[in-house]
């Protein structure tokens, strides 16, 4: 008998966390990438304009992360998610909060100021009638996030920021794959992505 999508989603999430912990040693690259966001390797000689541009790009990323946090909050409070799915959604939301923290630290280390969340966000609430709608909505946001990071990585002047953004991109891609799987879609629809 096939498993319920929500069950599958929850198990995938739990297994992912378990595997992450077991393989933490193998993830030193990602950890290092995030560590770079603390500013330890910021080039003191980078031009002011280049730094200002990096700060703007980081703040744009923070804006999208704040939106994701708000979207997951909307989903969590919708009453449409089964308990197991809710746990996964809250877990993903926690990742986005961690991204905001890391990106904010990077901005501060560059002498900038991180943008706050907006007071309100517009979402297609009228289209969210059942759990599947919420999952599809979240999947769309995650897919967009992957694309946004993919297109931002090449424009950072500081390549350490590109590395860190790539680490975040990988996390967003895993969210997207898990959500697609829960929707009964091919979790990895192609070899390339834009």
């Amino acid at each position: 008998m096939s498993k319920q999508p929500s069950k599958l989603l929850f198990e995938t999430f739990i297994n992912s966390r378990r595997n992450f912990i077991q393989k933490a040693g193998g993830l030193s690259m990602s950890a290092a990438a995030i560590g770079l966001l603390s500013g330890t390797s910021i080039n003191a000689f980078a031009g002011e304009k280049a730094v200002a541009q990096d700060v703007r790009i980081l703040n744009t990323a923070i804006g999208a992360e704040h939106e994701a946090v708000a979207a997951y909050q909307l989903g969590a409070e919708s009453g449409l998610l089964e308990p197991d799915v809710l746990k996964v959604a809250v877990g993903f939301q926690g990742h986005h909060k961690e991204h905001i923290d890391a990106l904010s630290k990077a901005i501060r280390s560059l002498g900038g100021e991180a943008d706050d969340a907006k007071s309100n966000y517009q979402f297609p609430v009228e289209k969210l009638k059942k759990q599947r709608d919420v999952l599809a909505f979240a999947a769309g946001l995650e897919r967009g996030a992957v694309s946004a990071y993919a297109n931002a990585i090449p424009v950072f002047d500081n390549r350490d920021l590109s590395l860190a953004a790539a680490s975040i991109l990988a996390d967003e891609a895993m969210h997207w794959a898990v959500l697609r799987s829960a929707l009964g879609l091919d979790p990895v629809p192609g070899a390339f992505f834009s």
């Binding site: 744009t60 804006g63 939106e67 897919r143 996030a145 694309s147």
Partner: peptide, 14 residues
């Protein structure tokens, strides 16, 4: 699809 991380037609996002 390259735009949907930050934009939509109907409302402001990032």
């Amino acid at each position: 699809n390259q735009c949907i991380g930050c934009h939509s037609f109907a409302y402001h996002r990032t």
